[in-house]
Design a binder for these strands. Structure first.
Lengths: 341, 341
DNA sequence: TTGTAAGCGTTATCAA
DNA sequence: TTGATAACGCTTACAA
């Protein structure tokens, strides 16, 4: 049964069904696709044969001819991070409902891997791409535009760029989180932000500044620290540093719930209590999905809504006959107060 | 530029490069693939043209001819669950290193969706499949076998079946967790298990029973509760029920860390403290990835190792010339004691 | 070193 | 209602 380099088995093709039923490949194809102009009897005979042989269509071959693959690519930082996992799940679910299949490619927030991901997706002839860009530069977006494959940015956006995007209201989120801490009586608020090339990091930080301004609190650059996925800028190191520096702060606004948890973890290890010693606000409301026994005040950003909207926008792009105006959506963020603040 | 139903853009093909450089399609193909028998000058000219035109190969068309797609499918319950997300990430990363692309399809632990997922993957001509089966029946496995597409089961296995699988030592994990609770002085131990059709649920429960036996503790069926993803059997409901029943227990062995967290969350809501009122042990050691500020005693099962092994086994199957013996791997589990017990 | 021809499995077009 | 033929973009085998 083994046939060397290629597949070690014989896939059933339209030809096999054609031979078995005594009609042409063409007729088989039309019958299985439920086209109108096929005799009832022929159709039944063909479908029965297909069933019996265990026929599964080779959709790739079909795509080559039809030009559509019913496949989209989701390109994001790291699927094991619930932040992305939740979005990937919602996109896959929406896609599956419309018989679309989903490639997931991780960029690990790396510029080169992102480029490879885009090329890989385009090479596989996906009908469209949903991208959470790593934003090290605009180069990959330019590449994507050049390919002509429809795409939507999710969660992050570029300034001076006309791509479609769906994001949440990061600015307002940062503002709400900080304002909440201020209203709770905190005057020295540490902002643990994310990588600064990422728009959501920058915009949440901007919201933080805005709330300080409004609360008549001087902005102190020492109280802004960026964390990332590198060894030298992970939350543990960053927190250790700031605790050693003896900088005064009592409130913390963290870039994400994941970061907030890790920060709390480190604070606890150092003998501090939350919210007694430090009040902390996260971002993402992951606890709506993962019931962690540590009630964290956070900003909810409706990842599922964002994801579904991104999918809808992409589908519209894929199916539209004429290029329409760009779509930019900003999903509301709201404050959810729990007991960490 | 718009062309109606099909793609609203023109992909650059080998033909375009051929026309531009004045050679045949074939020569272009060979040059870009760095075959030996191409003149240095020709190769450079062709590569320059490809670069200039922004050529990205249509790997689907190639696959149709070559029979290999360099694509695998990962079929699992729910990518947004870190349990699966971590495995998906590791698989995708391994695959990407070998220029393989990964489809992710969620089954939502549903039998029919699983069947659709398999058909979808086979239809896309994937070279292989890694499947975390929902195990409602063996039907889908039989289907998969019939297609002839190489596959490996991950995390779960069937009895009386000769499929390749990579799992962790669930039996020993359940045993270690329970033994730890017994050694900590607990005699009434609640076992929150998972859906019973899933092998890992059954095997962990078996380990629980074994530890009880060894500890001379009578097995009490009232202390075994199965949770799932349905409304009626989610951890909240299940815990509420058992607390209302006034059944005595002081230790808890939970099916997963996610379940353990939710159980702790519910216990806290009901005014109980962990580990003061209840000691609890989870499963998965997700805290090696997600730094939740609640140190949970757990069983570590090396998801990344499992995933990488599953990928390796699959690749061996895909590339082997002759069918070799089935591969069954059981990755060690170990107890990690933190402060929830 | 390069070109020609055939073929992968399907769909589209047109003729019968 | 069905069949014959071409085509999708690429790779393979073989000829020049």
């Amino acid at each position: 049964m083994v046939m060397g380099k290629k597949r070690a088995f014989n896939k059933v093709t339209l030809k096999d069904i054609a031979v078995k039923t005594g009609v042409t490949i063409n007729t088989v194809s039309r019958a299985l696709k439920d086209k109108e102009d096929i005799a009832q009897g022929t159709r039944e005979k063909i479908k029965a044969a297909a069933q019996e042989l265990g026929y599964i269509s080779n959709s790739m071959a079909g795509s080559l001819r039809s030009g559509l693959t019913k496949t989209i690519a989701v390109i994001l930082g790291d699927i094991s991070n619930p932040h992305f996992g939740i979005m990937a799940k919602e996109i896959e679910r929406s896609a599956r409902k419309h018989d679309y299949t989903t490639f997931v490619i991780n960029t690990e927030e790396d510029d080169l891997l992102e480029e490879k991901a885009i090329i890989s997706a385009v090479s596989k002839n996906v009908d469209g791409i949903i991208l959470c860009p790593a934003q090290h530069s605009k180069k990959n977006i330019e590449l994507l535009k050049k390919t002509g494959v429809p795409f939507v940015l999710l969660g992050r956006r570029f300034e001076d760029d006309d791509s479609d995007y769906v994001i949440c209201d990061d600015l307002n989120g940062g503002y709400l989180a900080t304002k909440h801490l201020i209203e709770s009586g905190h005057k020295h608020i540490l902002c643990i932000t994310g990588p600064q090339q990422i728009s959501s990091s920058r915009e949440r930080l901007q919201g933080y500044k805005q709330a300080l301004l409004e609360g008549n609190i001087d902005f102190n650059p020492d109280l802004v620290r960026a964390v990332g996925t590198q060894t030298e800028n992970n939350p543990r190191i960053v927190m250790k540093d700031i605790l050693n520096e003896n900088i005064k702060f009592t409130g913390i606004f963290a870039f994400s719930d994941m970061v907030a948890w890790e920060v709390i973890y480190i604070l606890q290890k150092n003998g501090y209590l939350v919210p007694k010693d430090f009040a902390i606000v996260g971002f993402d409301n992951i606890q709506s999905r993962i019931f962690v026994p540590f009630p964290l005040t956070t900003i909810s950003n409706s990842k599922s809504k964002m994801s579904r909207r991104a999918y809808d926008v992409l589908m519209r792009r894929i199916n539209e006959d004429e290029v329409s105006d760009r779509v930019n959506e900003i999903i509301d963020t709201i404050l959810i107060v729990r007991s960490s603040s």
